[in-house]
Write a protein that binds this DNA or RNA. Structure first.
Length: 506
RNA sequence: GCCUCCUUAGCUCAGUCGGUUAGAGCAACGGACUGUUAAUCCGUGUGUCCUAGGUUCAAGUCCUAGAGGGGGCGCCA
């Protein structure tokens, strides 16, 4: 079966395509039907001269999302969005679709989420899911090409392993409680001691009641774990890995990025070295006490604020101007409609800018007054990453705010060998990694210090009893990466059927 | 969990100081036109104004409580 993505190779030939009607425009003697088949989009032209009256009438009657088979000749045409079109000669209708709820006009988020099963057919969602696929493939390519073995950690576990987040609970037969896994890392460490370099890639569950555009209750995580790696090697791997993914998407997803109107500056900058900053320096940068390449984080936020305020003024001026045009009279009905929808749109945009103009001062405040020693919150990540046009690595973190298994610096034991990779332009954390503690007693002390149940970690401690070696790894949030690369404003768009606080259907 | 904004037609929204019959666009349907790509033209319909109380001669509009949702923060990947 021929797919739309391959039709250019069949120029001049008559082909048969199966798909759905994305949109339709009709004239007296002509009908334009945009067909989508999942692989791409193509406009099919039915003109009276070639198809005759009956077929033209059938084409004119098509409704949005009707399922059809269209036969016609492939013609190259530069004026077309994707360079080709079909001069139709015949049509078979599988089903004339009922009135379709999603139009080309804008819809609210809640409505779209309730219709997620249909929303997936929209162009932007199509583009996002194709990029998701490319990222997933790139991850496997990178690791498989670099001597890693893909492996799996259990999804059901008997204890809340790191003891930090809230987990989903379920009955495990009659007697026990099982928890849905929040991380496969500790298991990956055990497997790495068997197979050397491994990575897991599976779903993860967190029962946090987070209501933000960056959180899901069910998401996918990639967790490599490497025997005989130290922090330095870990950071090199993270950098090479992220570059590989970003380059793959840029090389193979031009159409998708175009549909998403993704600014490609990020992709053009990705091969520059990622800056490495210690936590302590990052704190100074966030507080505005230290510059990076002559740029100041607080000043950058203030510049952003000034821009938002200027944009807001311009937006309001445009609204007033358009309202003037509308009330002046002498406008045709079509023009009036246009002005009215423009005003509605501008008002929505102005409201968002207004919110933003109130938020940025709060971020500036939270950064200026950030206490050294605490973990970064979202305002701090925004302040820091707004200085960079590539991802930035923050390493050497205070022991108190990081997980118990991270290895301490021998010469500075209040700090641990952890690293976070923060995506630029205010996006924030996409990778968290570390060199793991190898010493049995240090680990036992850390478990006690965190009040974790020792018996649950006995198997983990065995890894330090039998051939303990330096090792390191990291975790990458899959949907976070897809969100970052596609530029969608909410993580719920990066997975076909998202699960998050307040959403379990469809 | 906290702060904040919102809820009016299938969808996106307007609705002024509380005032009598609640509006527009889109979508749908009928027609005209068109190598068209969310700005062509004419015509046709649509309401539990989120819910429950309250104030008032009068509530979509004001007050209280509740429900649902957006954005920000926290928690995190």
């Amino acid at each position: 079966m021929l797919q739309i993505q391959d039709i250019a190779k069949h120029e001049g030939q008559t082909v048969t395509l199966n798909g759905w009607v994305e949109s339709k425009r009709t004239g007296g003697k002509v009908a334009f039907v945009t067909l989508r088949d999942g692989s791409g989009f193509v406009e099919c032209i039915f003109s009276l001269d070639t198809v005759g009256e009956e077929t033209l009438e059938n084409a004119k009657r098509l409704t949005q999302e009707s399922s059809v088979q269209i036969t016609g000749k492939v013609v190259l045409n530069e004026k077309q969005e994707f360079g080709t079109e079909i001069h139709a000669t015949g049509i078979h209708v599988f089903q004339l679709a009922a009135e379709y709820p999603i139009s080309r006009k804008e819809h609210g988020v809640d409505f779209l989420m309730n219709n997620r099963h249909l929303w997936l057919r929209s162009r932007r969602q199509w583009a996002v899911l194709r990029i998701r696929n490319r990222v997933k493939f790139a991850i496997h390519q990178f690791f498989q090409e670099n001597g890693f073995v893909q492996t799996d950690a259990p999804l059901l576990t008997g204890n809340a392993c790191e003891g930090t987040t809230t987990l989903f609970e379920t009955e495990y037969y009659e007697k026990d409680v099982a928890y849905l896994s929040q991380s496969g890392q500790l298991y990956a460490e055990a497997i790495a001691m068997a197979l050397g370099k491994v990575y897991t890639f599976g779903p993860t569950f967190r029962a946090e009641r987070s209501s933000t555009p960056r959180h899901l209750s069910e998401f996918w995580m990639i967790e490599p774990e490497m025997a005989f790696y130290d922090l330095e090697m870990d950071m090199e791997l993270i950098e090479a890995f992220v570059k590989y993914i970003v380059n793959a998407v840029y090389a193979d997803c031009k159409t998708e990025l175009n549909i998403l109107e993704r600014d490609t500056t990020l992709f053009e900058n990705i091969n520059k070295p990622f800056p490495r900053v210690t936590y302590s320096d990052a704190v100074k940068i966030i507080q505005g006490k230290m510059n990076w390449n002559g740029r100041n984080a607080i000043d950058t936020l203030r510049t952003q604020l000034a821009k938002v305020e200027a944009d807001l003024q311009a937006k309001n001026a445009e609204i007033a101007e358009t309202e003037d045009l509308l009330t002046k009279g002498g406008v045709s009905k079509g023009q009036a409609n246009y002005y009215q929808s423009k005003i509605d749109r501008l008002k929505g945009e102005a409201r968002k800018l207004e919110d933003k103009s109130k938020e940025i001062p709060e971020w500036i405040d939270a950064s200026l007054n950030f206490p050294d020693g605490e973990d970064f919150g979202s305002p701090q990540e925004k302040a820091l990453t707004s200085l960079f046009d590539t991802p930035v690595m923050v390493y050497k973190w205070p022991r108190a705010i990081k997980a118990f298994y991270m290895k301490r610096y021998e010469d500075d034991p209040e700090f641990v060998k952890g690293v976070d990779l923060l995506a630029p332009e205010g996006f924030g954390e996409i990778v968290g990694g570390s060199e793991r503690e190898t010493d049995l007693q240090t680990l036992v002390d850390a478990i006690n210090h965190h009040n974790l149940p020792m018996e649950a970690f006995e198997w983990y401690l065995d890894l330090r009893r039998f051939g303990s070696v330096p090792h390191a790894g990291f975790g990458l949030g899959f949907e976070r990466v897809v969100m970052w690369l596609t530029g969608v404003s909410h993580i719920r768009e990066t997975i076909p059927f998202p699960r998050y606080y307040g959403r379990l259907f469809p």
